[in-house]
């Protein structure tokens, strides 16, 4: 074994498991959406969820902040663990859970409020009124989302006046404002132009220093560029999960090879 290899394996051994799914089954009414999915996701890495439309990627992603709970007919079996604790065990702490687990959606969805109020939202609903603290967090979050320079002179402007790419970074800033340790991204760049997409990808790269990131993407190149691990889901089953380089260059499963090779999907 070369020095490099032992280094990486050592690094992997050190990194703690942040998120786990244990034998997850999800049904919507009579439809089986996820079948026996188990996965361990290490801390401060980027994990891409890939697979054809309707394979259950988004449903799987939304398990981690319990955004499926209110959907009609939603049924779940199995455990979702964050730092070893089952988040479905205690029904009461939905608000706290979502402080730990931030989410960026497919289409930019800023509130029809000012840029400032969008970013301050997470703090406001938690009762923060201190103007200094709000100002500071808004600025920091916008800096983290690489949007501050573009909007610093008009924080009072309506968020809907921003471009699509800026809106998506604003949504990212909004999530970051409550300092979540986990970020869920559901095809965050699918509605954006290539330049805005590149910016989001850069940000993902930067944010993984502090956050554990799960990203659903249709774009295989994107998955390859930004992620450390890749999970391939197909018809509700986890077909393959492993190091991104390995999944893309030497997939273990035939289905993975076919999907990555562009034979379907």
């Amino acid at each position: 074994m070369t020095q490099i290899h032992s280094d990486t394996s050592q690094k992997e051994a050190q990194s703690k498991v942040k998120l786990s799914a244990r034998n997850i089954f999800v049904d919507y009414g009579a439809e089986h959406v996820l079948k026996d999915v188990s996965i361990d996701i290490p801390e401060k890495t980027v994990t891409a969820l890939i697979g054809p439309s309707g394979c259950g990627k988004s449903t799987f992603l939304r398990l981690f902040n319990r955004m499926n709970d209110h959907l009609e007919g939603f049924q779940r079996k199995g455990e979702i663990l964050i730092d070893g604790e089952d988040i479905y065990h205690d029904q009461k702490h939905l608000e706290e859970l979502r402080e730990t687990v931030g989410m960026v959606f497919q289409k930019p969805n800023p509130f029809p409020k000012s840029i400032y109020e969008n970013v301050a939202y997470g703090l406001r609903i938690r009762g923060v009124k201190d103007k200094k603290r709000l100002d500071q967090v808004v600025e920091e979050s916008l800096i983290k989302a690489a949007l501050f320079d573009e909007v610093k002179d008009h924080l009072k402007k309506n968020a809907l006046s921003l471009s699509g790419g800026q809106q998506q970074r604003l949504c990212l800033a909004r999530s970051l404002a409550v300092d979540p340790s986990i970020l869920l991204m559901d095809e965050p760049a699918s509605a954006l132009d290539p330049i805005s997409t590149a910016k989001i990808e850069e940000l993902v790269e930067e944010l993984k220093k502090k956050h554990t990131i799960l990203i659903v993407t249709h774009n295989l190149q994107q998955a390859r560029r930004v992620s450390d691990q890749t999970a391939f889901l197909y018809f509700g089953e986890l077909v393959e999960y492993g190091n991104t380089e390995q999944v893309f260059t030497q997939p273990k499963e035939e289905q993975t090879a076919h999907y990555i090779g562009g034979r379907f999907g």
Binding site: N65, E95, F105, I125, R174, V178
Partner: peptide, 8 residues
């Protein structure tokens, strides 16, 4: 979704 996702 955005609001609930923020923990509201």
């Amino acid at each position: 979704d955005a609001s609930y996702g923020m923990g509201a």
